[in-house]
């Protein structure tokens, strides 16, 4: 997987994530009013579904820059370690298999 595989600079998700990350009001809407917010940003049904589900391979195929994957997870599940870490591990394992499992890299 490479950023360049599908990277789509015109993806409406880029503008949405960029603006939501910097606004308390939009952060609240991401959590509580996602569908309406996504409509305002012009997301397709597939983009809405992939973002809502934190479907990383799906987001990648839709051209979203992988750097935004962790911010999307945190916008959805919370910014505190206890909120984002367990679900991030689960999502990474689901998305990338063994490579996405932090236990793969545990060393003495």
């Amino acid at each position: 997987m490479s950023i360049m595989d599908h990277f789509d600079k015109t993806s409406p998700l880029h503008r949405m994530v960029f603006e939501v990350r910097k606004s308390w009001a939009l952060r609240a809407r991401w959590k509580n009013d996602f569908d309406a917010l996504a409509r305002e940003y012009g997301l397709s049904e597939e983009e809405k579904r992939a973002a809502r589900a934190c479907d990383l391979p799906g987001l990648h195929a839709l051209g979203v820059h992988p750097f935004y994957f962790n911010p999307i997870i945190r916008l959805t599940h919370g910014e505190d370690w206890d909120e984002f870490q367990p679900i991030t591990v689960e999502i990474m394992k689901r998305s990338y298999g063994e490579a996405g499992d932090p236990r793969t890299y545990e060393r003495s």
Partner: peptide, 9 residues
């Protein structure tokens, strides 16, 4: 590699 397969590597 934030967000990629090596997110934790």
């Amino acid at each position: 590699e934030p967000g990629g397969p090596r997110n934790f590597d």
